[in-house]
Design a binder for these strands. Structure first.
Lengths: 186, 186
DNA sequence: GTCTATAATTCGATAGAC
DNA sequence: GTCTATCGAATTATAGAC
């Protein structure tokens, strides 16, 4: 073991710095030079490990929503549990920029938008199906997702005063009835 | 009157082309050269009329939501009227890219995010206040805005299948109860 | 594994002729 | 009002030394 960093350490450091930059500045304004400077390595190392700026971006888009097992939640508590999970997920670990990277990029970048659709198809939809049954989940998954995305957009990206001024608990009590109305719609 | 275009015609053509480019590609990928080519003028004309790329962008961000007079709508019909208006606004005139420019840019650009907050403060909030009274409007404006933004995000930007598959009428009937639950929350 | 040097583009902005 | 010509800066990506 030398003092020289291992391949894995360097790669992780690059990815961490890249997420931070992509989250704060978006794809275009993020430069490989800046990422390398943050990670305290040479710009050419980024190319070596990720092939191209696009390859680095693709790696930074990997997101795990860590959806809980909603089949254990009583139907009446599902809306509140959903809102609570997403608020926790967004505000839990400030150093985890993956969510921010994905949402921010998905709006201007088709590559990222496709990833976002995949995340909802493979993580959100199955979790809802476990709680609501497949046919009802399929019917409401879109509108439920839209509402959760709207919350994230308004609070964490646009910072609308009427949304940032609420506490996490107020978000849950304010938005759970709306989700409930969507879930139990005819 | 010569065949030479008037100042106003040229300026309008530039702005129209700029909106199209900004909507489709975002701020950084849009080049003054491309906008000028679309408008069939010389790139230097863009600088002449708008000073800089940022000046052009600022002009392209001007948006009128054309909010209807909601004081005439009975309280029970407010949620449906809101959803219907926004869906109409988004799907009404496909050549009007202003909404798309604003929303898409606001996610990665602080200048645009500030404009978005201003639009909600000066157009959405007053319309809600006319229908709900000032104190209730102030309490729910944030979450109502978040839900309407979530719809636009999921359907027109991310194109989540579960949302794009719905007809405008299904959007109204599916989302109005959710808005109603938020408006009448304790 | 890490770095230097540089190639090859591309863009915003300016100066100035007509 | 419109266009030509160009400057200066910044970027991704590559080639190759150590």
């Amino acid at each position: 073991m030398t003092t020289r960093r291992t391949s894995d350490t360097t790669k992780t450091a690059i990815l961490r710095a890249a997420r931070e930059r992509f989250a704060a500045q978006g794809y275009e304004r993020t430069t490989i030079r800046a990422v390398a400077a943050d990670a305290e390595i040479d710009p050419s190392m980024v190319m070596r490990y990720f092939g191209s700026k696009e390859g680095l971006f693709d790696a930074a888009l990997a997101v795990d929503l860590r959806m809980p097992d909603l089949s254990a939640v009583p139907a009446a508590g599902l809306p509140a549990a959903l809102v609570r999970h997403f608020v926790d997920r967004w505000e839990g670990d400030p150093a985890d920029d993956a969510l921010l990277v994905l949402l921010r990029s998905a709006v201007t970048n088709e590559q990222a938008a496709a990833r976002m659709r995949a995340v909802f198809a493979t993580q959100v939809a199955p979790a809802l199906a476990a709680a609501l049954g497949p046919e009802r989940a399929e019917r409401v998954a879109g509108l439920v997702s839209a509402q959760l995305l709207g919350l994230a957009l308004a609070r964490y990206l646009l910072r609308l005063p009427g949304v940032t001024s609420l506490t996490p608990e107020e978000l849950v009590t304010g938005l759970a009835p709306a989700l409930a109305a969507t879930v139990s719609a005819p």
